[in-house]
Amino acid sequence: MSEPFLVVEDIYKSYFLNGKRIDVLRGVSVSIEEGSLVSLVGASGSGKSTFLHVLGTLDVPAAGKMVFRGRSVFDMSDGEVADFRNRSIGFVFQSHYLLPEFSAAENVAMPALILRQDRKPALKRARELLERVGLGHRADHKPGELSGGESQRVALARALILQPALLLADEPTGNLDPTTGEGIHALLREVNRDLGITAIVVTHNEALARSMPRRLRLHDGLVVPAEDEPAQA
């Protein structure tokens, strides 16, 4: 057996509000296999987004370890972490967070440009990816000219352009209506199946959660497997 894909050990993180300390993550430990599709549910404010940010190295925990393919992520230098984020992680947030001054194709190509790849091939791959998510005809429009669902698809394409090992999605369909949302979910499943990308999806959507092969719950600062529960908030 090869080394474990992603192992998280003893993550502690707190927030400070008005001088009071709120312990959000209290020793979270979990192991993710390669190629799995995982959903993460939990009550509002339970720290799901915080955990996802820590996984994506966007936030720094107070204590804990994260080992990705045998490398301890928190021991890496700032430059190495940025590199890791660029190559190995793809993000999709609740808001699309696209750069407004750039067209859809340029937005999708941005991670490749950050990796200092040549502009022309990068843009070409971006357009192909946009085709795949069904937005080939909107490649040159700016984000201001796209609808919510289209923007989210562009964000998904941007997350995938460098074929990251890990895709992290934080309530990707939170701002969308059910039909559009279902389109995104289908894309996520397709991406996981066809490209073998490991995906962790934080969601409120029960239907989506139940459709994922592995379900986790963040409860009391710890991550536990989620049981099948009938529509419990």
Partner: peptide
């Protein structure tokens, strides 16, 4: 500010 955060999330280092 939001754009800077997004760029960092995409992997732009501080120096960038």
């Amino acid at each position: 500010r939001k754009e800077i955060a997004v760029l960092k999330a995409l992997g732009v280092p501080d120096g960038g």
